[in-house]
Structures are given as structure tokens and as C-alpha cells.
Design a binder for these strands. Structure first.
Lengths: 343, 343
DNA sequence: ACCAGAATTCAAAGCGCTTTGAAGGCCGGG
DNA sequence: CCCGGCCTTCAAAGCGCTTTGAATTCTGGT
């Protein structure tokens, strides 16, 4: 059942049928009614491929995910972001096309995706400082939105980001207000823009209180349970161990908790933990009362908003740049408490 | 730069250029050389949309992911599977199109995806008993491969599955051999086919040793850290607590470990834990020596193989059914040991 | 009754590619 | 020297839709 068949069965021309279905004004209401009714009855669906070719719009958004031998971008945060974005695409009739490629081929993939014309825009994930993808996408003229920011890039670009600096500044201040002075930062990999900003926020809060940032207490690495555990063990073994830890993900926080408990300490009493909570679907920070005090911001919601931003840009032909800065809320759970009296 | 431009610039017809580029035999070698050289020089890429329309092949595989209010399919296992499949698609020149839809619209989505003709086949995730999607896809005549099996379905279908039954049978036997008699099963949600099979395997092993399966020791639920923790706490508080626990995911195992340690027990000495390990990218079971004894099978590799199977089916036009049953390996880590002498 | 202009509908071109069927060029055998 | 047959190239149709520009049908005003 294609457009022509449908038109024939109605004794109309394809032109009229197409217009009736696509809401053009120059078709009589009575005709439109007949057409839509027949389309529904005959279960007619316009062929996407033909439609795309004719309109020149791919009706699809691309997400290019590099798989590197090193850092894994195929991670839980990414998944939830995609899920959020995907909801928005579906509702808008857009497809989400995912390209999983070795990172050595990332540039080639962007070029190809563009010249092959199978997407109308892309979302850029996990930006780093001076991210080369931004210049590339500018050159290609492909609409895009960055999830996060790529400081150091001179070119304008649209982004949606969590205010990581502020979130970690507040978290740190919260710990300082509780009397903590030795606060460790268990950060993500600091080539990632978000990790750099988190460290800045942390340092700003310390500086504001005149507390010197101790390099020994600032660690960065993959945000896994094992890494959190190892790091916390090491930190707790220091001559002057921290009384509080600030971690970048719930997974690291779980590792930290394990090390803490293994050391015979009680979380929230002997030692405080604040984490960042992306509100991942399958990794919850407790139910009613959060287990961990956390800076919380749904990455899924971020995905939804970034997708919406991109679709708006595409629909309006307006390249922006547009910006959206999300604020995390600081939720207090059971993992924090006043600093224990100095030993 | 489209085909016509390229042809003109070479003084050839589009026909010849198209054939030269697509490896048809009836074009002179010298001509083919000239064409490919010019294509490379002018950075020509055939427009995917046009190609797809002309050939009738979408060159894309669909993955429909329902987002339900209840069970989350957008989970870490899914992510790794997609990553594996995506690698294969990219290499074969296929796109991966992801549809994230409310589960109430899943059927409609499959129908639409088919009549709109934007994919050549689909992968079915997380089958349940008597999964309705199989009949639906049969009706539509869309090639598909199921990741897992849907027992109860009369229709033939292609699948790739882990031998969940065998894996859990072996794990249970392993614990029995160590002298454990009270072995708890912390399973996934038992509407999922894989969870049902795991329980079967567990029960078979017990039965083979003449150990009665105690319903109080068989629990099922979402495979999260919190759920593992809660469940383990509850089980450990039983009048006759288990001496070993078998869990369905590393995340649950982490929760179980926390409960165990909190209870002052030592894992591998006072209590044994065996888990299933999907070898997720960001959730590793230790480095050299596994932390947990586990039935291990890479879900990413499964994604690769399922994708390859589907592409083969599409290329050959052979609907199968094809089957592939993967075996998990049982790796021994530090979480298991002989059953402690009866209290 | 007639006509300008609005309201509808339609034929045909075009999106960029593949593929069928036909044509042109060149070979060797008779 | 001619011709059948192979090698190579090409023109044109077609994939299923949108969209331009023209044709047709309806209006209402005179």
C-alpha cells in the first residue's frame, strides 16, 4: 500500500492525498476526511525512505559513540541520557541512530554521517577541553548540541550542561559548614570537561574558607566501584586521613562506602560522604531518604532537554548558539554529619 | 557532489559510475580505476537516503526499547549488548536505530517501523514467556533475532542465548561440592525468561544432590545493589540463614556483600557468594583475580554475535531459524570457600 | 448569464541513486 | 571485407514521496 495505490483507491491524485495527509490548507475538508479515513482503514504508512529523499530531511538524530581501548564512554550515564533523548525523538517522529565506532574513526564517521545525509543533527557526548569535534561539526555545517561544555573552544556552539562547578562548590561548602577541613575529592577522569569544573568548584569553596587544597586529597580516575574502593582505602591510610569525601558518581561512592565500612568506620558519623547522583534508572540513591548526601540532577532529564533543544534548532533553522545550564539540588542523606573532633 | 556531478566531471554516465563504484563486473578496469580515484579525490559519498530508496534496503537494524513505569529495560546489560551489536553494524555499513517508546506503544512501534520501511531487521530484547512480539514479527515478516529465548512460543524463531540453566546449575553444584546445603538464590525478575531458566538450573543441581529447595531461600526482584542488600539482610536474619548466595548480577552481589560485611561476616570464609558476571564495560569483577566467584559471559560479545547472525540472515535471505547457545565459564574468585561447620 | 478570483485538484518534475534494456565499439572467423 | 558476438557504455525508467505550476471547478458579484 503506497501513496499511489491509496490515491487510486480514492479516485484522487497522489498530490491531493499527500497534501491531505500532511495538513496542507488547500485541500477541502471533506476530501481530507475521506483521505485520512481511508489511510487509517487501509493501514497506510508513508515510506520513510521516500519521504526523506523527497524532503531532504533525514528525520533522524545521530549519536556517535567512540569505543576506545581506554576510557569507556559506553557507560551508565550515557545510557540514561540516550534514553531521555530517545523519548523525545520518538514523540517527534525522529529516529535515533547510534554509531558505535573505534575512536580512531570518529572523525571519519562524522564526515560520513554528514555526506551520506542520514541524520539532521547530532548530539556530542563527553566533551573534553578544546574538543576537536566542535570545529569539525562547524565545518560540516551539521546542527549539533553538546552535552557538557568544551572549554577552550573559540567557536560558538550550543550546549546543555549541568552546573558542575556550582554543584561541587555547594557540596564542598556544605561539608565545610559541618566543620570538615580535610575533604577529599574522588573525581572522574580530568580530561573530561565536567571533571575539571567539579574540581574548580571544590577548590573555590575551599579557598573561600581559606582552607588549603591538599593535592594528596585530590584523586581522579574512572568512576567505578573498584576505583572508589581503592582510592578510599589509600586515602584512609594517610597519616592525616580525610574526614569527608566527595565523589563523582554513585558507583564510586559505593566503593568508598565499602572501604569505609571495612575500616570499621561508620558513614555519617566517623566520616562523611557526598556524591554526585545522576539519578540513573537502575542505580538509585535510596528510596525516600537518600543513602548518600548528594548533588542530584537527572541525566535522563538532561537527555530530554538536549534533544528538545536540538530539534527546536533543526525545526527553526536557527543555529543558535543556545545554552542551558542545569542546577543540581543538594539532597541531604545519611552519609554526612559534623566533623568528628580532631583526633 | 552527487553521482551526476561526479559522472559529468568524468565525462561518463551515472550508470557507469554507479557500477564502477559498486563493483559490477561489466565495467572496464581502467574506467573503474579512474572513477574510484575521482570519487576519492572529490570526496564523493553516495547519499544514503537515495541509495536506500533505490535498493529497497534500509541498511539499518532496529532495536525497540520499551520504557515502562515498572521494570527498567534501559539497564547496563542492555547498554553493553547494544555496544557489541553496534560495532558489528558499523563495520558492515549498517545503522543502528534505537526506538525508545512507552511499552504501551511497543506493538504499534514494531508495525510502524516495518511499514515505514526504515529498518531491515530487528533485535528483540529481554524476552518473556510466550512473548507476544514473536508472533507479531512473524506476521510482519520482518527478520529478527531474539537475545534470549521465549519459551512457550510455538513459532520458530532465531535466537542467541546464554545457557542460563547450565550456568546456574554449575554454580549451584560448585557450592554443593564445597559442602553448602543452604544456598540462596537472589534472582532477577522471574517473568524474564532468563531468570526462569536460572532458577531451573539451580533447582536441578539441588535435586541432583537430594537437597530440598527451600522457598524461603529463593528471592527474585530487580537486580540492583539496594535489592541485593535488602534481600541478603533478610536472608541472614532467618533462623537458619544460608551459607551461600547465588546472585544474578554483579550489582546485586555488591549489595549482598555489603549486607554480609555489615553483619560482621567475612565473604569466602563465613559465607560464600557466586554471581553471574556479564563482563560489563564499567562494572568489572576485579582485575586479575576475580573478587567474586562467577559464571562469566560477556554480554557485549553476545551483542556482536546476535548482530552478526541477523546480518547474515538478511544478506542471505534465509530466515532460519538459527540458534546459538553460549556457555558461561565458571571463574573462581575470592568470594567462595568451604561451608563453615554447622553451627 | 458572465466573469474574476478563490478554492480545489491534478500532471509532472524532481530528490539521488540503481537497474533494465538497448546501443556502440571492437574482435576474430569465415 | 563482412558479420555475429562480446565488451563496455549509456539512456531512461523506477524507487515512493513532495512540490511547483497549471488546470479545473466553484463562488459570488454584476
Amino acid at each position: 500500500m503506497n501513496l499511489k495505490d491509496l490515491a487510486n483507491s480514492l479516485g484522487l491524485s497522489p498530490t491531493t492525498v499527500s497534501r491531505a495527509l500532511n495538513g496542507y490548507p488547500e485541500v477541502a475538508e471533506e476530501t481530507r476526511r475521506r483521505v485520512t479515513e481511508a489511510a487509517a482503514r487501509l493501514n497506510y504508512r508513508p515510506n520513510t525512505l521516500a519521504k526523506r529523499l523527497a524532503t531532504g530531511r533525514a528525520m533522524a538524530i545521530g549519536h556517535v559513540i567512540p569505543i576506545s581501548t581506554g576510557h569507556e564512554i559506553v557507560n551508565p550515564v550515557f545510557t540514561d541520557f540516550i534514553a531521555g533523548a530517545g523519548e523525545v525523538y520518538s514523540r517527534a517522529g525522529y529516529d535515533l541512530v547510534l554509531s558505535i565506532v573505534p575512536d580512531s574513526e570518529e572523525e571519519r564517521t562524522y564526515r560520513e554521517i554528514h555526506s551520506k545525509g542520514n541524520v539532521d543533527g547530532v548530539i556530542v557526548h563527553a566533551p573534553v577541553r578544546n574538543d576537536p569535534r566542535i570545529a569539525l561539526l562547524h565545518e560540516l555545517g551539521l546542527p549539533f548540541v553538546v552535552h557538557g561544555r568544551a572549554t577552550g573552544t573559540a567557536l560558538p556552539y550550543s550546549w546543555l550542561d549541568l552546573n558542575n562547578n556550582r554543584a561541587f562548590e555547594r557540596a564542598t561548602r556544605f561539608l565545610l559548614d559541618l566543620g570538615h577541613r580535610r575533604i577529599a575529592l574522588v573525581n572522574g577522569i580530568e580530561t573530561m570537561d565536567f571533571a575539571i569544573r567539579r574540581r574548580e568548584g571544590y577548590k573555590q569553596a575551599l579557598a573561600a574558607q581559606g582552607v588549603a587544597a591538599d593535592p594528596a586529597l585530590m584523586v581522579s580516575g574512572e568512576m567505578t566501584e573498584a576505583q572508589g574502593y581503592d582510592t578510599a582505602r589509600r586515602l584512609l591510610a594517610l597519616p592525616a586521613p580525610p574526614t569527608a569525601l566527595l565523589t563523582s558518581s554513585l558507583l564510586s561512592a559505593m566503593g568508598v562506602r565499602r572501604a569505609v565500612e571495612e575500616a570499621g568506620l561508620r558513614m555519617g558519623r566517623d566520616i562523611s560522604i557526598v556524591t554526585h547522583d545522576d539519578e540513573l534508572g537502575y542505580l538509585r540513591n535510596g528510596a525516600e531518604v537518600p543513602i548518600f548526601t548528594a548533588t542530584r540532577s537527572s541525566v535522563r532529564a538532561a537527555g530530554r532537554r538536549a534533544a528538545a533543544m536540538l530539534l527546536r534548532m533543526i525545526a527553526s533553522g536557527d543555529d543558535g548558539p543556545h545554552h542551558e545550564l542545569l542546577e543540581a539540588v543538594l539532597v541531604v542523606g545519611g552519609s554526612t554529619g559534623p566533623a568528628p573532633p580532631a583526633a
